[in-house]
Each structure stands twice: as C-alpha cells, then as structure tokens.
Design a protein around this nucleic acid. Structure first.
Length: 477
RNA sequence: GGCCCGGUCGCCUAGCGGUCUAGGGCGCUUCCCUUUCAAGGAAGAGGUCAUGGGUUCGAAUCCCAUCCGGGCUACCA
C-alpha cells in the first residue's frame, strides 16, 4: 500500500511554527517513500473561528519553506473536495448511517440544559460529562422529533472496557471507556465536529499514516471509537511532541513570534527554519545536525522522534540562520537581501559589500544598518565614539589629519596600499594600528563596528572617505 | 477534580542493560587569529541522567511509587 499522509490545519490564523513542524514531518514521510503522496486538507468545521486569508497564509508560508504537496484545495486530486465545509453531505450521510446502525443517536438537549447539568455535576463534585439523557429515547420517536427539533448526533460510547492504540512514538496507550463521554459527532448546524470529520476523511481519502500534534493524543480514543462504529481499520498513528515556549507551555503568541510570516520578515532563511525546526523532536541519532530539506527527507525516521516536547530557542535558530547565510553564494545572498534594502541603493555596490558582511549577520534584516554608511552622502557622526578610549581629542585630530594626507595622494587606491598607509601613519604618530582604525571607522562609517575597514574605504571611494575624515576632525576640534 | 503524556547540563539533543569517569550542538567563559565586529580554531565551566525504592553480577537505560511539568476534559480544532 502506498504512503498517503496529510496535514490538516484549521484556517483560524496565520501559519504557526508548530504546525509547520508537523507538516515537515508529514512531508518527510511522503517524500521518502516511493510514490508517497502529501495532502493538504482544510479543517474549517468551526465556522465561527474562520479567519479570512488564513488559507493564503498557509500556502505562502509553506511554499516559502519549499514544501510542496500533491493534493489540496488548489491542486485538486481524486479525493476532493479538500475543504471540509465543502464535504458536508459526506459527513451527514455517514452520521445518518451510524444512527441507523444504532451506533449513534439524536440528542435534543439544549445548550442551556447542558450548562445547567455541568454546573450541577460540578457542585456535586462529579466529573462533568453528558448524562446520556437522550440515549434512552426510542429510535423511532427520536427520528420523528429530529424532523422538527434542533438536534445533534452523539456517539454511543460503551459503558465499560478499555480502548487502546499502539502509537508510533508513544507506544501502547490505553484509556478506560468510562472516562469518555458520548461525544457530539454532528452539530446542530449540520457541520461535523472534528472528531467525526477527521476519521471519515482520513478513511475516505485513504490516509495511510496519521501524524499529528501531541495535543491530539487524549482525543484519540474518541476517534478509535468512531473507526470501530464504522467498522473501519485504524491506520497507524504517530503523535508528535509539541513545540513549547520558554515556560514549557505550548508555543503561543505571548511567547513572541510564532508565525512563519514573522520570521520571514525578520530575515530568517527557509533553509534555517527547516533545519532548526526538524531538530525539535527529532535527531538523526548521530552528531550531525546541518541538513537541507532533501537531506532531511533522506534521514528522518519516525522511530527517532522524541516523546518530550521541545522548547523554542531563538539563540539556536539564530545560529542556524547565520550558518545558512554563510553558505549562500554571493549572488544568492544578494537576491535574498534585496527585499531588506531600500530599492534606491545601488545594487552593484550592494553586490560588492555583501561578501564583506556575510559572516557578520544572523538575520538578513541586520545587513541594512551595517552597510548604510555606503549609501549616504551626509553621514551623521557620533561624536562620542570618534576619540578612542585613552586618547585625547587633539591627538586624534592629528592622527586623522595625517591619515587624510596619506590617503589623498594614494594611487592606486587599493586595500593593500591603504593598509600600508595606515600602518605608516600609526607608527608616525605613535599609535597602535588598532586605535587608529577605531578612530577612522568612527569617522568614516559613524559606527563602532562594521565590515572590514580597508575594504569599506575602497568601496566608499577616495572622495567620500576624505570628506568624512575632514568632517570628523572639525567635529572633534 | 478526572483521563492521558512527559521528565538526560540554562536550551536542542545522543544514549535503547555493560564500551557512560554520560557524547555533540546552542548559549556562556578564556585564549589564539585579527583593522572593529563577526566568522574560524583551541580550551573550559555546566549534568548526583527529577526523587526514592526495587530487578540484575551490572541501570540514564527494565519495574513500582512519589514529586514536578504539560495536554485534554466544548455543538474548538
């Protein structure tokens, strides 16, 4: 049997990092198996929580990551439609079949009664769960009332016994049936609940493996019961440990950025996101940890997936991002940098500085301020950094003026010659090269740190370099 | 409260009964390189493997209990 896996987000917001990680694992599974198929299914059965644009966000984010799938709302496929709200008749027919078989029943309890019931149960210190009132209504009577009264369909859960699954990552997990209530399968608005829809869709779409977040493990017995009610085989399940915030709780908005879109805008590379994310909850079992998407497809194995949740670590992400930036070719770096730089900046010049800052960035967004001095005619000097520590203003002016003179008649104006000139001036005025370059950097770039000085001077050009050195002298003096 | 899951350096993790005096990476510290900052190289601090009992010749690895953390407990997904 061929591998068919799916990722099934709810369009309730923009693409979350956690669901990307789940998607990644499904992607690995699909691609590492000959003829494997990856399916996108939109689970929009809760009409109240729909967020416009969410589907676009899913497509944009995943495509940016380099993830492609085979069947989905926009790609089509033999098992469509792939949006649950367009599959209502399928769920309704199946629910009706369960009622006809006596595996499920109509429930007419109002929300008011349900809340009262729960309050009463709570007051008595009991477990809050549906009291199965409507379960005893004779089927014929129930069917008749269903024609005119608002109702839901509930599953008849056996009173006793246990139900279990052998999860691919958590192993054997077992639940007592009395801890499970007669769950709602079909809501009064005719929409299925998640519990009904997943099971039907996974079966009907011939999903071979269910990989989903750990938070679904507790509701797995409910799904198992639905499979059983239909008489269907249960495909292998794997629950994936969650991505956690620093406090150990599921990663959420209050922990900072959680959406793919945000990381993209902050200048993270999809390569880094993929590499880093794949390593939360999985490891190759060796000491390697730098992987491309394709390498991950080759290496990833479900049996190396961790049980415990993993915390999101920005420092580690930054490390991977810097690493992947350094691996970019100069041309590619230029291409990635483009959206982060003002369009009026001369790309030829950008192309020449980019290599100088390649190993000085953890995110693409950091490039701009590091090279901004090259793209302005009027530099804002920071007076406080112009004079190196332990040096006097007057001697700094002297040093800078000597450098100015030395550079003015330098020809050719190359890095090598500049270096020689600076070394000579340093010896001359009795300064270390270090101090001299500190003063020069402040004078020329207006900053304390930046790309290598000599290269920067060449790129800036003799004229602008001299202007800035002179301006700095005036400012100090 | 009930049900379920988890627990190896601050963080991501290796480890599947002996090779563990617990390995790697991030972060941190120090040094080297050096025109700043990085990058790179080297070294180091950091773990009584949550705790307590077993089982075993031998346990981070198996079992039990406890503690702590998390998830679920909706006509949400």
């Amino acid at each position: 049997m061929s591998v068919r896996v799916r990722f099934a987000p709810s369009p309730t917001g923009s693409l979350h990092i956690g669901s990307v990680r789940t998607t990644l694992y499904n992607y690995f599974m699909a691609r590492q198996n000959e003829g494997g198929t990856l399916i996108l299914r939109i689970e929009d059965t809760d009409q109240d929580r729909l967020v416009p644009g969410a589907i676009d966000s899913i497509y944009d984010g995943l495509h940016w990551m380099g993830i492609r799938w085979d069947e989905g709302p926009r790609e089509g496929g033999p098992f469509g439609p792939y949006v649950q709200s367009e599959r209502l008749p399928i769920y309704q027919e199946h629910a009706a079949r369960l009622v006809a078989d006596g595996a499920a029943y109509f429930c007419f309890c109002t929300r008011e009664r349900l809340t009262q019931m729960r309050a009463a149960q709570q007051a008595r210190g009991e477990i809050t769960r549906y009291d199965r009132l409507c379960r005893s209504i004779p089927p014929a009577e129930a069917a008749q009332r269903a024609d005119s009264e608002p109702h839901v369909v509930r599953l008849k859960v056996p009173e006793d016994g246990t139900i279990a699954i052998d999860d691919l990552v958590y192993g054997h997990v077992e639940w007592p049936l009395r801890s499970i209530e007669d769950q709602v399968l079909l809501k009064s608005d005719g929409f299925p609940t998640y519990q009904l829809a997943v099971v039907i869709d996974d079966h009907v779409m011939e999903i071979s493996h269910v990989f989903r977040g750990e938070e679904w493990l507790p509701s797995t017995p409910k799904h198992l019961l639905v499979y059983r009610a239909f008489g269907w085989d249960v495909p292998p399940h794997a629950h994936l440990p969650n991505v956690l915030g620093p406090d150990g709780k599921k990663l959420a908005k209050r922990h900072g950025a959680t959406k793919v879109e945000e990381f993209r805008k902050e200048g993270y590379l999809p390569e880094a996101m993929t590499n880093y994310l794949a390593l939360i909850g999985w490891s190759p079992g060796t000491e390697e940890e730098i992987f491309t998407l394709d390498e991950l497809v080759q290496r990833w194995r479900i049996d190396h997936v961790q049980k415990a949740g993993g915390k999101w670590d920005r420092d580690r992400l930054n490390h991977f991002n810097g690493l992947w930036i350094r691996r970019l070719s100069d041309d590619e770096l230029l291409r990635r940098l483009d959206p982060f730089l003002p369009s009026k900046w001369d790309r030829t010049l950008v192309r020449r500085v980019a290599p100088l800052i390649k190993e000085r960035m953890q995110t693409l967004a950091e490039a701009k301020e590091q090279i901004a001095f090259l793209f302005t005619d009027r530099l804002e000097h920071d007076r406080s950094i112009l004079v190196p520590k332990k040096r006097e203003p007057h001697e700094t002016v002297t040093a800078l003026s000597r450098v100015t003179v030395a550079l003015r008649f330098l020809d050719p104006f190359t890095e090598e010659r500049i270096e020689q000139a600076i070394a000579a001036v340093a010896t001359d005025v009795g300064w270390s090269v270090r101090d001299l370059t500190i003063a020069m950097r402040a004078a020329i770039t207006g900053r304390k740190v930046g790309p290598p000085l000599y290269g920067s001077i060449v790129l800036l050009g003799k004229e602008r370099t001299l202007e800035r050195l002179e301006a700095a002298q005036e400012l100090i003096g």
